[in-house]
Design a binder for these strands. Structure first.
Length: 820
RNA sequence: GCCCCGAUAGCCCAAUGGCAGAGGCAGACGACUUAAAAUCGUCACAGUGUCGGUUCGAGUCCGACUCGGGGCACCA
């Protein structure tokens, strides 16, 4: 046995042993330990693991290994989010096969994860690009289709000219493509959607059930994203048009202040209204529409942008007072929100006021407040008394809203309604490396779902296909693949050649882990009952909206399909921060990239994992310039030496050991558990260091290396350290005479009797300032403590000649004397 | 512009309303050593961003502000 702690030697020693023992196997049917499902967000296989992965997986592992030590049957699976553009782009750029590129990277990441000692259950691995996985994407798509939750429509969609594909709303950030930062433009296309908006209310309301269990930041972002507005749809009669135009408003109380109507310039309605307008107006409309289409979202969304618009020379009629108001078109009204038309109340809506001022339109105040928007130029939105509003006069804002809706509903010219900022999820992509959409288009029968027994619709080989993005799916050119007989009429038909957004893959993968290789079902309903939902989800905040919202949507649909009995997929969520270098995100171009592999070679896996955990609270960013893996390494050696110094036999009875040392150990066990369960992994490390220091002292200058309490402490130290530094912990466990694996050794139960103190230090304050302290029995009475405190010389000196006004006694800890 | 989070020692960070320090880095000193490294030990350093309030007592609660980070921002 070596007397030195050597990184490389111990790492090589344990991997094969773990392979043989499979300590993280969660598949045993007869396992009667309580179950816990701990999940790390699965990675995208673009190259090898980096520092960010190292942090995320270190923290996830602490949680997983903690519950194992607590005696739980922990399912801690891993897989790969393996479809997606980078594989395809690598293929285009370097002439590689996207499939081969993906699997190569997966192999590399897998071996890095094993070396990194992740406690994954390697028998549950999945890859979303495997037909055995994505056939269930297709199956789910067809289930959604059957329920009307998957549909095709033509609309103006986000288009990334660089990726040459459509994007979901969620993938457009500040008008730029989330992936490549190109300016996103609009394009009219027929695309597949999932009807997320059907679930908008539940997606919003159920966030309340996650309060306290998810970071509030994420909850806020989701609430913002869904953006529910309550109000009314109000019908305005239009001169020269059969049908009235309905507008959505959250302020039906201000209906009397509506001095004009605005229609989104790029809406169907605007086109129709303009067509029947005078010719010169019509020509101006075309010019304005063209200009709008050229403006990108960045310009359009700029809040300080000047309002533009055009009067159509047509008129609408206010349903409450019959007033004739002009109809304008503008680009500040969105075609795809509400009905694409608004009633403009300039006095009480800033956008409308800006427009009215720009176009010299009238402003009428109907809610009286201290400020006059006509004078200030600032629209008032607060509460006030209704004026100029007929039957609403004299009411407050809230009553007026109710009354207005009542009147509208009575007259059948309006209805209570709500609107969401959330749009349906656009899922089709004109790219190769994704799940084929299982629909066949037949000239006679239209959209025909691929029969379930013909799933999966496998992706054809990429050889011979031109993957270069050109706005249509490369699959369309795979003639052998795309041309099929219609399942209904057997006539000539074509497969849908689009592939699914990869967020479809990740929306339900946590369920697939229950049964990753099943050919019969997407996941087993009974296994879902016993394992799901995920007890603890760990991942970056970058997925705060996209992935988490979609996964929540899928969960609710699957619940309604009666496949699962819960409505939220992730019971608890932990967002780890990012790893930075010198205050900035690492990148090659910045020249501040820290290579994980180099760090691991230099310091070893244990030291890097420990550094990641100890750097600070998990949700904070780690600046690699601020941390010291060398120090972590030094500490591990110190801990190892403590274990190596233990002289007692492993059979000794710890209760015969030194009481002080035992107290240290059991206090440690208690506070360590509290730290981990509160996600304070850095505090957990500090506790481990504290225990190590106590053991060092006990061995050197206390009861000595042969004391049974020292063995007890060293054993618990090894178990606790196994969360952070699995190799060193295994080595310690072995040197203490035990068989592997320490990962499953299980913490000793806390002996509460050891934590009871007979004496403790009481402090005495005078006016909140510390003046004296002395040791007292823990069960000292308030009166006794008060007397002791008042008898103190220090205290008397501090009181001096002033009068004692109040004495607060918190036995046995504290006395505070307030003087006048 | 609105909302959220943070600010504690030279640095990273702890502290159920009750002694500002758990732990670490960097630093000083000592032991061991021919010496150094490693190791072991000892020590020093802040009154908690600013102002005000509540309280017997505030890093902790409340209000305003400064700085830093994040989210939202023509969604009617």
């Amino acid at each position: 046995m070596s007397t030195e702690y050597e990184i490389s030697r111990i790492q090589e020693r344990w991997l094969p042993i773990w392979d043989k023992l499979k300590p993280f196997d969660s598949s045993r049917e007869d396992d009667d330990r309580p179950k816990k499902y701990i999940l790390d967000m699965f990675p995208y296989p673009s190259g090898d693991l980096h520092m960010g992965h190292a942090e995320a997986y270190a923290l996830g592992d602490v949680v997983a290994r903690y519950w194992m030590q607590r005696g739980y049957n922990v399912m801690h699976p891993i897989g790969w989010d393996a479809f997606g553009l980078p594989a395809e782009n690598a293929a285009i750029k370097r002439g590689l096969d996207p499939r081969a590129w993906t699997y190569e990277n997966i192999d590399q990441q897998k071996s890095s994860m094993r070396r990194y000692a992740c406690s994954f259950d390697w028998d549950r691995v999945l890859q979303t690009c495997d037909p055995i996985y994505y056939r269930w994407n297709q199956w789910l798509f067809l289930q959604f289709y059957e329920r009307g939750l998957a549909y095709r429509k033509n609309s103006n969609v986000n288009w990334c000219p660089s990726c040459q594909t459509v994007l979901a709303n969620e993938q457009v950030v500040q008008g730029l493509c989330e992936r490549c930062d190109s300016q996103v433009t609009k394009k009219a296309l027929t695309q597949w959607y999932f009807k997320v908006t059907d679930y908008a209310d539940r997606l919003l309301d159920d966030l309340d059930t996650l309060e306290g269990a998810w970071p509030s930041k994420v909850l806020t972002m989701q609430r913002n994203w869904i953006g529910r507005s309550i109000g009314a749809n109000v019908d305005f009669e239009i001169e020269g048009r059969e049908q009235p135009v309905s507008v959505f408003t959250t302020r039906p109380d201000t209906l009397y202040g509506a001095t004009f109507m605005v229609v989104a310039v790029d809406s169907e309605l605007a086109r129709e209204l303009a067509d029947a307008a005078p010719t010169d107006v019509k020509a101006a409309f075309e010019d304005y529409l063209d200009a709008t289409k050229q403006a990108n979202d960045i310009e359009r969304l700029a809040t300080d942008r000047e309002k533009t618009g055009l009067f159509l020379e047509r008129y609408a009629s206010n349903p409450l007072n019959g007033e004739r108001i002009p109809i304008w078109v503008s680009d500040y009204v969105l075609a795809d929100y509400g009905t694409g038309a608004i009633m403009a109340v300039p006095a009480h809506d800033q956008r409308d006021l800006d427009f009215a001022n720009a176009m010299k339109l009238p402003v009428r105040v109907v809610v009286q407040t201290d400020e006059d928007p006509i004078e200030t130029g600032i629209a008032t939105t607060g509460d006030g008394v209704l004026i100029n509003s007929g039957e609403l006069n004299g009411l407050g804002k809230a009553e007026a809203i109710e009354k207005a809706i009542e009147i509208l509903e009575d007259r059948k010219t309006g209805i209570r309604s709500k609107n969401f900022r959330l749009r349906d999820w656009l899922i089709s992509r004109q790219r190769y490396w994704g799940t084929p959409i299982p629909i066949i288009h037949c000239e006679k029968c239209g959209e025909v779902p691929v029969p379930l027994d013909q799933l999966p619709v496998e992706l054809p080989d990429s050889s011979g296909l031109d993957l270069q993005p050109k706005g249509t799916s490369p699959l369309g050119a795979a003639s052998d693949w795309v041309n099929v007989a219609c399942p209904k009429c057997s006539g000539p038909a074509r497969r849908d050649s689009d592939t699914m957004d990869t967020f479809v893959d990740s929306s339900w993968y946590f369920l697939r882990f229950l049964d990753p290789n099943s050919e019969e079902v997407a996941f087993d309903v009974e296994k879902a009952k016993s394992w799901a939902p995920v007890d603890q989800y760990v991942g970056g905040v970058t997925h705060a909206i996209l992935h988490l919202l979609y996964a929540r949507f899928f969960t609710k649909v699957l619940h309604d399909m009666k496949l699962i009995d819960f409505e939220e997929p992730f019971t608890r969520l932990l967002n780890q921060g990012m790893v930075l270098m010198n205050g900035a995100a690492m990148s090659k171009s910045r020249g501040n990239l820290v290579r994980l592999s180099e760090q691991l070679d230099e310091h070893g896996v244990d030291a890097i994992r420990l550094t990641m955990s100890f750097a600070g609270p998990p949700e904070d960013d780690i600046d690699w310039a601020d941390v010291s893996p060398a120090a972590a390494s030094k500490f591990l050696a110190r801990a190892w030496r403590v274990a190596n110094d233990v002289k007692s036999a492993k059979e000794v009875d710890p209760t015969t050991g030194d009481a002080e040392m035992r107290k240290h150990t059991h206090q440690f066990l208690k506070s360590f558990g509290e730290a981990i369960e509160g996600f304070k992994f850095n505090v957990g490390v500090a506790k481990v260091m504290e225990l190590t220091n106590a053991l060092r002292k006990a061995i050197d200058t206390g009861p000595g290396a042969a004391d049974p309490a020292v063995r007890e402490g060293a054993e618990e130290l090894a178990k606790a350290l196994s969360l952070y530094a699995p190799y060193a912990a295994e080595e310690m466990w072995s040197v203490l005479g035990h068989e592997p694996s320490v990962a499953l050794a299980g913490f000793r139960a806390v002996d509460e009797t050891l934590l009871v103190q007979s004496e403790m230090v009481a402090v005495v304050q005078v006016n909140g300032k510390l003046r004296d302290k002395f040791s007292v029995p823990v069960d000292i009475s308030e009166d006794e403590l008060r007397e002791l405190a008042l008898a103190s010389e220090q205290v008397q000196k501090a009181i001096g000649s002033s009068e004692i006004k109040n004495v607060i006694v918190r036995a046995p800890k504290l006395v505070n004397i307030a003087t006048g």
